[in-house]
Structure formats: C-alpha cells, structure tokens
Design a protein around this nucleic acid. Structure first.
Lengths: 235, 235
DNA sequence: TCAAATTCTGACCAACTGGTCAACATGCGG
DNA sequence: CCGCATGTTGACCAGTTGGTCAGAATTTGA
C-alpha cells in the first residue's frame, strides 16, 4: 500500500521531481543566502521570494511563516553536521581520527559556507532554535568523545586533554574559514580562497591539534572533493 | 586657546560629564546589545531607544541614522582590538609573545563578548563597514607579524608556519568563547562560564599554538582580571 | 535676568513588514 | 470531457520600520 501511494505520487512529478519538491528547494536555497547574510530578524520573506523568483504569496503557500522556512532550512543544514559527527571511534588511531575529522570539517566549510554562517548566526543569537540540540545531541556526542579521548590517553596514545575544549577549538578553527571568509581573503590578499588555502588550513589545524594532544604526526594525508550546495540540488 | 575651549566645555558638564556624553554612551551601550543579538539589519532603533530608556526621537537627535550608531559603536569596539594588536615584536621570545597574545584575546572574549559578536556579525555579512580595515590595517599588521615569524623561524626558535593561517586560527579559537558561548556552556554543562573555563581555554589554545609552531612550552603563565563593559562607563 | 544654544519629544510620514485570502490557473485520473 | 486536488497570485491588512520636524523645555554664559 505504501508502495502504491509512492507510485501514484511519482506519477504527479515532472521530470521525476514534483513541483512541490522543486519549489521547496528553490525557497530553501534562496532562504539560505538571505538568512546567512542578514540573520533571522534581518531576513525578509520578500527578499527570499525575489531570489527564489516566486511571488511572496507563493512562498507562504509552501511555508506558513518565516520561522517555518528557517526551521526547515536548519534541518537541512544540520544533516551533514550530524554526519561528520559519526566518525571517531575508540578503535581508531587518534591521529588518523582527529586529522580526518579536521579535514572533513574544513571541507564542509568550503562546500557549504552559507550553512556554516547560518549556524554561527544561530549561536550568536543565543540558539533560540537549536538550544535543545545543543543540550542533548551535541552534549551527548561530546561526552562520548570525551570517554574515547580518556581511553586513548590512558593507553598512552595521547595527552589527557579536555575533549570539550578540544572540540570547541576544532570547530572554531575549521568553521572560521566559512564564517570569516572575507577576513581571511583580506589577510591572504586573495580574491577567492583556493584548494591550496583550505589544504594549508587543514594541515596547520591538524598539526596544532595533534601536537597539542601529544600525538606524533599522522602519516595518512589526502584531500577530497565533493561539492554540494542547495543550488545544485535545484539545478 | 584649545585649553580655553576645553575649560569652557568642562563648565557645561554635570557631574564632570556632559549630557551629550552620557546619553551617547547610553545609546551605544544599548546598541551594543541589540546589534550583537540581532545583527545590523535585524536591529531596530526603537529597541535601542527602549533599552537606553530614551524616546526614539532623542536617539535620532544624537545619531542621525541607524548606520551612524553602528559606525560609532564599531569604532569603540575596534579600539581594544587594535590595542591587543601592538604586542608581539621581533625581540620577544616567541613562546611568551604568543602565549600572552592568546591569553589577552581570551580575556577580551570574556570581558567584551558583545563586541566580539558584533564583529562576527560584521564579518559574516561580508564586512560592508570594515572592508577597508581588513584590507589595510589588518593585512598590514599580519604582514608585519609574518616577517617576525619568519625571523623567529630563521633563528631556529620555531617552525616555519604561515602567519596568516596561524593568526586566523588563534582569532577563531579565542573569539569562539564569546561568539559561541551558548554552545560551549551547553557542552560543558554549565550555566555560566567561570574563570577556570577561560583559563582552561587559554591554556589549551596556547599549548596547541606553541606545539603547533614547534615552540617548547613557555614558563610564564598568569591570569588577569580587568572587566570593562560599556555599561560600566555609563554607570 | 535674559537671549541664545542645547536638549527633548510627541506627532507624523512613506515605505515596508509578515501574513491572509479569495479568486483563479493548471494538470491529473477517470 | 469533467471534477477535484494542487498550485498560483494580486490585492489587501494591521503593525512596524527608519527617519523628520516643529515646538516645547532646559541649560548655558554674560
């Protein structure tokens, strides 16, 4: 039955993608830009509608309120964040695990800078929407990782550092390449940040993290490429 | 003559502080809170007026436009920033210089978190107001420090690291304790961040920076206390 | 004391805000 | 072809926005 329903729904689609889906993505993609630059209070539904190339009333047909757009967007933003969470298990080599995590976070800053900025705005505002996430999921995750760090340090694989502060610093150092991109471009004297810049960032952060934790330099180093923006999902 | 003018001006004051000065500070103090939480576009002059406990039209008597408030505020914010800039000369011991700089930046995040958040908002927006500052003063400062770092590394006092990325990471790691305070409080399971938290942060960041630069741990460690908010200037 | 400068403020304005709604268009299955 | 669900939209609304202004209150120096 569920299958039948899905088939019928599929029939409604144009080019294998329903109008609803396409417009929803258009709106979220536009909202991503506006919320990232203006923050929640500064963003206007009119501007979102303009960028999405839809009448404002059409935007309100898909999302009742501005807050609903923001909530939906926040969900789509947190998904990759939570993904990058998984990694780092007790069996891993701490050097490899941390180096990989740093590199993944830097690449996420490169691929989805707008998402990072919206998250930053949400934190600066005092996390009115994400406070539950912070107190539950995030805190639980850090507690788990703190235990792993403890195990690693007990085995003499690394120093006994505060996992809470360690990850705080890793997040700050990696996300700054999205949030403060303009400052970094100015300081580097560049018009755009290139692959080499992100690699240099990941390398230095990794070095600081590993040495700061008393871990001898890891040997596995490799860059990835996987661009994904909401824009590309809209086509 | 200049002296005479100053004396006459002083006579205008009430309690050794002119009405103009006092109200200007009241407005800037209120604006600091609103701009920090809402960003430039989200902030309203009405809310600033309410917090300052002045009629909106009185606010506009001192500052013609919202942008003027923002500009004046930005100037008062950048002053301590530029102060903490000085330090770090070629004669210094790199370990002491960097450790001191990190500690000063962390304390600044503690003492003026709102200022840090406004700066962060400005960067996220693409620095419409501070782009000149970034391209000129900031870049020049980093170039100078890059030369110092070079000298240090040539003398074998530290590794040859990119000063641009190094300071980018230091800024990110230290300012995150102001900008992302709520995230850090959630992760640490605290209601408020205490002295010990900022000390732990400064210690870990310092350790990561020094070891990341190949500098043996410094010996001079000391905490400071010097709270300064716009609020206190208003009385 | 008094005229001038400064400070204060309610009333007001055009533009815009988030959001509603009724009428209309479209595309589908049958 | 019809009837219905889905999608579209301009007109509209009350409240808010940044900002102006005329006139009143006050503080000033002499």
């Amino acid at each position: 039955m569920v299958e039948k329903k899905q088939i019928r729904k599929a029939a409604h689609r144009t080019g294998n993608r329903s109008v609803r889906m396409r417009n929803t993505l258009k709106i979220l993609s536009a909202a991503e830009k506006v919320f990232a630059e203006k923050g929640f209070d500064g963003a206007t539904t009119q501007q979102i509608a303009d960028i999405a190339k839809l009448p404002k009333s059409n935007v309100h047909y898909y999302f009742k309120t501005k807050r609903d757009i923001y909530l939906a967007l926040m969900q789509s933003i947190m998904a990759p964040w939570l993904e990058s969470f998984q990694a780092i298990s007790a069996d891993d080599d701490p050097g490899d695990a941390l180096a990989g995590y740093v590199r993944r976070k830097v690449m996420l800053s490169r691929e989805r800078p707008l998402a990072s900025r919206i998250f930053a705005n949400e934190m600066i505002r005092g996390a009115p929407v994400l406070s539950d996430f912070l107190r539950n999921e995030l805190r639980k995750w850090v507690e788990e990782k703190a235990q792993i760090v403890k195990q690693w340090s007990e085995k003499g694989k690394m120093d006994d550092v505060s996992a809470e502060h360690l990850f705080t610093i890793i997040w700050a150092a990696t996300q700054t390449y999205a949030d403060f991109e303009i400052q970094i471009k100015s300081v580097l004297g560049r018009q755009h940040l290139e692959s080499e810049d992100y690699d240099a960032a990941a390398d230095l952060i990794t070095r600081m993290v590993l040495r700061g934790c008393g871990i001898s330099q890891s040997n596995s180093e490799q860059a990835q490429q996987r661009p994904t923006t909401l824009d590309q999902l809209v086509r």
